[in-house]
Amino acid sequence: KELVSALYDYQEKSPREVTMKKGDILTLLNSTNKDWWKVEVNGRQGFVPAAYVKKL
């Protein structure tokens, strides 16, 4: 599985998104959309802005 690192804090703005803190390591589930990537963090799945994470 592919991992990404959070470059910035992000506070979810809808139920489809997830909150992350800078430095968090997230499991990348889907990166086909260039703007929003689906990740899993702390057992929750949702979307984060692609520009806020980088692949490890």
Rank of each mutant, 00 (worst) to 15 (best):
A6D: 00
K34M: 10
V39T: 01
R16F: 14
K13F: 06
K55S: 10
T27R: 12
Y10Q: 00
L3Q: 11
K1Y: 15
G46M: 05
L29E: 02
M20A: 02
E2Y: 13
Q45N: 07
G46Q: 01
P15I: 10
W37L: 05
S31M: 11
A50M: 05
V4I: 09
V4G: 14
D9N: 09
K13G: 09
K34D: 11
G23K: 03
D9H: 06
L29Q: 03
A50Y: 03
S5M: 15
Y10S: 01
L29H: 05
Y10R: 02
V18P: 01
W37T: 03
Q45D: 06
T19K: 04
F47Q: 03
T19E: 03
I25S: 04
F47M: 08
A51S: 13
G43P: 01
K1P: 14
R44G: 03
T32R: 11
Q11N: 14
E12W: 07
M20F: 11
Y10G: 00
V53T: 04
K13I: 08
W37K: 01
K54A: 13
K38Q: 13
N33R: 10
V18W: 05
V48S: 01
V18F: 13
S31K: 09
R16M: 13
G43E: 06
L28C: 06
Q11M: 13
P49V: 02
K13S: 11
K34W: 08
G46N: 01
P15R: 10
K38P: 02
L29F: 04
S31H: 09
Q11W: 13
K54G: 11
K21F: 11
P49L: 04
K21G: 05
N42A: 10
N33S: 10
A50H: 03
V18E: 01
A51P: 08
Y8F: 13
W36V: 03
Y52F: 14
K38M: 15
W37E: 01
Q45Y: 09
A6T: 03
K22Q: 11
S31C: 14
N30A: 09
N30P: 03
K21I: 09
V41T: 11
T19A: 07
K54T: 14
K1Q: 12
D24V: 05
A51N: 12
P49F: 04
Y52H: 07
N30Y: 08
I25R: 06
W37A: 04
N42E: 10
N33T: 06
Y8A: 11
Q45H: 09
A50K: 07
L29M: 07
E12L: 08
K55F: 12
V41I: 15
L26F: 07
K38R: 12
Q11C: 13
R16G: 14
Y8L: 10
P49C: 04
D9T: 06
Y8V: 11
K34C: 12
I25Q: 06
W36R: 03
A6P: 02
Q45L: 08
T32Q: 13
S31Q: 11
D35K: 14
N42F: 08
D9C: 07
D24H: 04
D24L: 05
K21N: 09
K54C: 15
E40L: 08
T27D: 04
L29A: 02
L7D: 03
V18Y: 04
Y10M: 01
K21D: 04
W37F: 08
R44S: 06
S31G: 11
D35M: 14
L7W: 05
A50D: 01
L7Q: 07
K34Y: 09
K54P: 02
D35Q: 12
Q45M: 11
W37Q: 01
P15E: 12
Q11F: 14
N33C: 11
T27E: 10
L56N: 07
G23M: 03
L56G: 07
D24E: 11
D24S: 06
W36Q: 03
G46I: 04
V4A: 13
K22I: 07
K54R: 13
S5L: 15
F47D: 03
N30I: 09
K55N: 08
K54I: 14
K21Y: 11
S5R: 15
R16V: 10
D9R: 03
R16W: 15
L28P: 00
V39C: 05
D24F: 04
A6W: 02
L3N: 06
E12H: 09
K21Q: 10
K54V: 15
N42M: 09
D9S: 10
V48I: 09
R44V: 09
V39W: 01
V53I: 10
M20P: 00
V4F: 12
E12P: 15
K1E: 11
K54N: 09
L7T: 07
Y52R: 05
A51K: 14
K54Q: 14
W37I: 05
F47K: 02
G46R: 02
F47R: 03
D9P: 06
E12N: 08
S31L: 05
L56W: 11
K22G: 04
E40C: 12
I25M: 08
